[in-house]
Nucleic acid binder design. Structure first.
Length: 469
RNA sequence: GGCCCCAUCGUCUAGCGGUUAGGACAUCAGGUUUUCAUCCUGAAAACCAGGGUUCGAUUCCCUGUGGGGUCACCA
């Protein structure tokens, strides 16, 4: 039975990289008809951020990752870790340490000065049983440390990275139970992964160097070791691990900005894993079908927003007008009648990168604009007087068209007649009208736009520009 | 710095001893008889370096270089 887990610590909101780890885990479990356990590793009380748990859950839900068990909070399982740590002390695999933080940091400083490896000097390992007893009786603050073997090496075959091995003498006597009686990460994961019958530990490469410590713990407990795999970490544009420093955003942030779930899933999936040419849009179901742990890269991928944009725009284009309408409506920053939005949508849909981009095209539909005279003249390529004349001719030409026949086709015909009348090039005239009507240089096709704008608005804006010139 | 890992176009990647080293994003150019976008076509763009092994290395091995991760009573 395949059982995976996602075990975030509630010290912040998971960014895209962290969420990708959850995604890979989930997809791997689904692929193997396995189960997904959600565990909250809230053992660091100092860095705990209470508002991050709801966000973690919201992200998983948004992506569609359904957990089969949990969320389990480690803070509610303290006794379990304490008992296990004590057990290790009894069996001689771990020991009490009464050293103060001050001593430890002074020791480390001295070691570094010497150029030596910063690690615990095992002073408390030399304590006699009686000495330990006295200290405990005195309630001296203490931790429990793992007694790491001095010789030999610890290795495993990583599901993604291949064989990895560490010499034991490189590994510090890790703290297992902190002086506040909370477990450290190392104790917590090992105990929980075992108790929760996790079969595959799949996490980011940043955990590789702690893996031997965990392996040693499994050994100390006499437990079987789960399969272990380490995903590459996502790097920022500066090639350093993606972090808050890069403004690394969460799935929730991207959703807010008008990105959609499927493109987000696709984007995350292709960061360190590949299928065909990495251009196919995915969703959770497709990803489950295609995912293969063997195709996960060892090399760390670099975050590239352009790809997300590509997938998002592509996804939007595949939506029906009705679907797009529903998605876009709540994001309007302009007051707009439904019927109007419906008629605008086909004109702008190919131009949207995110859903929020809808607002980029709405100002001249929803409100009124002030004609940018200089821009109009510049785009026309003519002098001011000529533009004024041409706009005048345009106003009267369109005025002759009945409101009932106010359709793109008819309007376009008038436009072409005007080209003959004025002697301007198509580009010159149409750009002049475009800017006069929208204030912008880049817009949907001119006559489709005019149809939606309607005769009154078109006439009013052209007239206004004409008069102002 | 020690330890661990990694190394194909700018980016994501295909490749698993013999290929004109392929695709996608991005970029650039042209086309779709009005802009922008879409769409289509095309272009430029990579095997980190040096040694081996081999008839033959992008591919296997070693070294160097470069990159990343990690060195807490944080996860």
């Amino acid at each position: 039975m395949v059982r995976v887990r996602f075990a975030p610590s509630p010290t912040g909101v998971p960014h895209i990289g962290n969420t990708r780890t959850a995604l890979y885990n989930y997809v791997f479990a689904q692929k193997n008809q396995g189960q997904f356990v959600l565990r909250i590793e809230d053992t660091d009380r100092a860095r705990l951020q209470p508002d991050s748990l709801p966000k973690i859950l919201a992200i998983l839900k948004a992506v569609g990752i359904a957990w089969d068990e949990g969320p389990f909070a480690q803070s509610e399982r303290l006794k379990i870790y304490q008992d296990h740590a004590e057990k290790l002390v009894k069996s001689g695999k771990a020991y009490y340490c009464f050293c103060t933080q001050e001593r430890l940091s002074a020791m480390r400083k001295a070691q570094q000065k010497r150029g030596a490896l910063p690690r615990y000097d095992r002073r408390c390992l030399k304590l006699t049983r009686a000495q330990v007893k006295t200290q405990l009786a005195k309630r001296t603050p203490h931790v429990i440390r793992l007694k790491v073997p001095d010789t030999g090496e610890t290795s495993w075959v990583d599901l993604i990275q291949g064989k990895i091995s560490f010499k034991n003498n490189q590994i510090d006597d890790q703290v297992l139970l902190k002086s506040d009686q909370f477990p450290t990460y190392h104790l917590g994961v090992v105990v929980d992964d075992h108790l929760m019958k996790v079969s595959h530990i799949l996490r980011g490469v940043e955990w590789i160097s702690s893996t031997p410590k965990h392996l040693l713990l499994y050994q100390a407990f006499g437990w079987p070791v789960p399969k272990i795999g380490h995903f590459p970490v996502i790097l920022g544009p500066d090639h350093a691990k993606l972090s808050k420093r890069h403004g690394a955003k969460s799935v929730l942030d991207y959703l807010d900005e008008g990105y959609l779930v499927e493109p987000l899933i696709t984007f995350m999936a292709y960061l360190g894993w590949s299928h065909n040419d990495n251009s196919e849009l995915l969703n959770l179901k497709k990803l489950v079908k295609l995912f293969d742990l063997k195709k996960v890269q060892k090399q760390n991928p670099i975050f590239d927003l352009k790809k997300l944009n590509y997938f998002n725009a592509k996804y939007i284009r595949q939506l029906s007008n009705q679907e797009l309408f529903a998605l876009v409506k709540p994001r309007l920053k302009f007051k707009l009648a439904d019927a109007k939005l419906t008629s605008i949508l086909p004109l702008v849909r190919d131009r949207l990168v995110t859903l929020n981009d809808i607002n980029l095209f709405l100002d001249y539909f929803a409100g009124d604009i002030k004609a940018p005279l200089d821009l109009i003249v510049a785009q026309s390529g003519k002098d001011r007087a000529a533009v004024k004349t041409a706009l005048g001719q345009t106003v009267s030409a369109f005025a002759k068209n009945s409101a009932a026949d106010w359709q793109e086709k008819n309007l376009e015909k008038i436009g072409h007649d005007l080209i003959e009348l004025t002697g301007w090039t198509t580009k010159e005239l149409f750009m002049t009208l475009r800017v006069s009507l929208t204030g912008k240089v880049a817009t949907p096709p001119l006559f489709a736009l005019m149809e939606v704008l309607g005769p009154e608005v078109v006439s009013r804006r052209l007239q206004a520009a004409h008069e102002a010139l």
